[in-house]
């Protein structure tokens, strides 16, 4: 499946898709988007890259084992839920920073949770597609 067109297109597409996915993630709390969609878009980007350049190159590109992304994402989500416990509030109580930040807007633990979702979804899609690529390449 090594096609020049796909390879060239992917080189351009991947950064765009990654940026788009982060854009979806950040604005997801206020406009359509969010961790699920963002993660799927990013996962699709890496999958395309793996299709064009092979899994080993794509893995280098990703730098981190996708299975670790799943774990890291779950960890982020759980920590965001646990934070409120330290303040004596019930589990998963949303905590928000008072002043809105530029571009991103208000930040708080629910957004951190969404980041966890985002990481898990990337990890899941990439784990599935990369291992399938590898298995089919045998």
């Amino acid at each position: 499946m090594h096609s020049l067109i796909l390879a060239t297109a992917t080189r351009l597409l991947l950064p765009l898709m990654l940026m788009f996915s982060i854009f979806l993630l950040i604005r997801g709390h206020n406009e359509p988007g969010g961790g699920f969609v963002g993660g799927l878009v990013a996962g699709a980007g890496f999958t395309l890259y793996a299709a064009a350049y092979g899994v080993s190159q794509a893995s280098n590109m990703l730098r981190i084992d996708p299975k670790r992304l799943i774990g890291a994402g779950l960890l982020v989500a759980v920590s965001s839920a646990l934070l409120s416990l330290f303040l004596g509030l019930p589990l998963m109580t949303g905590l928000w920073y008072k002043e809105p930040l530029p571009v991103i807007g208000k930040v708080g633990t629910p957004m951190l949770f969404d980041v966890g979702v985002y990481l898990v979804v990337i990890g899941v899609t990439v784990t599935i597609t990369f291992s399938l690529f590898e298995a089919e390449g045998e």
């Binding site: 709390h29 969010g34 994402g73 839920a81 957004m111 949770f113 969404d114």
Partner: peptide, 22 residues
């Protein structure tokens, strides 16, 4: 503090479900 109600449900109101789902 979220204007996308669907997303707020997912990450806040029903966050615990989402935790299970991921």
């Amino acid at each position: 503090f979220g204007r996308n109600v669907v997303n707020v449900i997912l990450v806040d109101f029903r966050g615990f479900d989402t935790m299970g789902e991921i």
